[in-house]
């Protein structure tokens, strides 16, 4: 098995929402946060990231704002909405149970 792999389908939303808990961030920064915090085991391709961000925004879980970046460019920053925060809680709970279950299965074999 490789050291790093692409995100399992369906967990991308969870990862994106979690990374935004620390504060608003632009797309590149989000990808970077995920990579750093997973010690480079989880890689988010940008081709998947941006559609996911826009989908989350459509669902009102995140919202975006245009800001002027450090280098004086227009940059789009995303942040969690109240609904996003709630959804994140639910997703985390589900994920915790799921991984505990998976761990249990693995340990038993």
């Amino acid at each position: 098995m490789a050291d790093s792999r692409e995100v399992v389908q369906g967990t991308l939303d969870l990862l994106v929402l979690s990374s935004l808990r620390a504060g608003s961030m632009h797309g590149w920064g989000i990808a970077q946060r995920i990579r750093d915090r997973s010690s480079e085991t989880v890689l988010v391709t940008t081709g998947a990231l941006y559609p996911a961000l826009h989908r989350l925004e459509e669902r009102r879980l995140v919202r975006s704002k245009w800001q002027v970046s450090e280098s004086n460019r227009r940059a789009r920053y995303y942040e969690l909405t109240a609904a996003g925060r709630k959804a994140l809680g639910a997703e985390v709970e589900w994920w915790t149970r799921f991984t505990a279950g998976v761990a249990g299965v693995i340990a038993a074999t």
Partner: peptide, 17 residues
């Protein structure tokens, strides 16, 4: 236009990085 801007921003950050 917004999407283009956003992706260009991403590209430039990535290159700089």
């Amino acid at each position: 236009h917004d999407i283009d801007d956003e992706l260009r921003d991403h590209l430039e950050r990535d290159i700089a990085f």
